[in-house]
Design a protein around this nucleic acid. Structure first.
Lengths: 131, 131
DNA sequence: GTTATATATGAACATATGTTCATATATGGA
DNA sequence: TCCATATATGAACATATGTTCATATATAAC
């Protein structure tokens, strides 16, 4: 028997099986990936950041983000499908807001990771307001 | 002057400008989106989950995740480029481990969001071990 | 040196994604 | 009713992405 770990585990897979039993179900893995995916686009991140300051209607979001009404509407649908945002209708307007507090925490944690790239801390007025 | 908010803000953009000044720079928005993006794939999520239990070599990860060595190697590169994992070389082997604690927090927060879809809390033995 | 093993990587392929454009739906005012 | 406005959506397009396959690199044993 060699000391080669990878060759060895083809015959003795105890460690592998032990880890496998601790993994979460695929449906949960997919849920995690899908949630991260909806935040993986700069336009959608900007929308979420803008909504940290409170609810906005679609055309306000379009103005803030600097993108077309159609593009924003498509992206809001994805954010809503994954329960990142919720909406409130009033007359002709539709107001969007963040759905729950996990979103803010997710952004804050991610910011902590991104921050390590930069020399100085990043100012995040909107997140600071929420805290 | 109409009460229509969207028409109105074409002439009075105070609210919009105020929010715009509070947004983070584009380079940070992209950093956030890129970090979320690297976690937006089920294979990469599984890799990170597996590494919660400690460092693993490439072929061990491939076994645990159930994907080819090549596919895992490609994904590890992306995880490493975004500083989600780091690596340690030893003889022929390369051992990967999580790069910092933000990753665990990110997963935990995201799990909190995903959990709301399900009736009962999801068991996450590996994360519980880390805590 | 040669051979075997562990990992990395480029090309190719199918699939997924984001925006634009045109248009549909819905609501309010005349 | 008819028109204007706010939002939603389907089709089309270009671009991005994940896996496979073949192969390159690196290290160890002989």
């Amino acid at each position: 028997m060699t000391t080669d770990i990878c060759s060895e585990l083809r015959f003795d897979k105890d460690k592998i099986e032990k880890i496998k039993t601790k993994l979460v179900p695929n449906v949960v893995v997919d849920g995690l990936a899908d949630t991260f995916k909806v935040l993986s686009d700069p336009t959608r991140v900007k929308i979420v950041l803008a909504l940290l300051g409170g609810e906005l209607c679609v055309c306000e979001i379009a103005e803030v983000v600097g993108m077309s009404q159609s593009a924003i509407s498509h992206q809001l649908r994805k954010l809503k499908d994954l329960r990142l945002v919720k909406r409130r209708k009033s007359a002709k307007m539709v107001y969007y807001s963040l759905d729950d507090d996990h979103i803010i925490q997710l952004l804050t944690e991610c910011m902590g990771h991104v921050q390590e790239e930069f020399r100085e801390p990043i100012s995040m007025p909107l997140i600071e307001n929420v805290k």
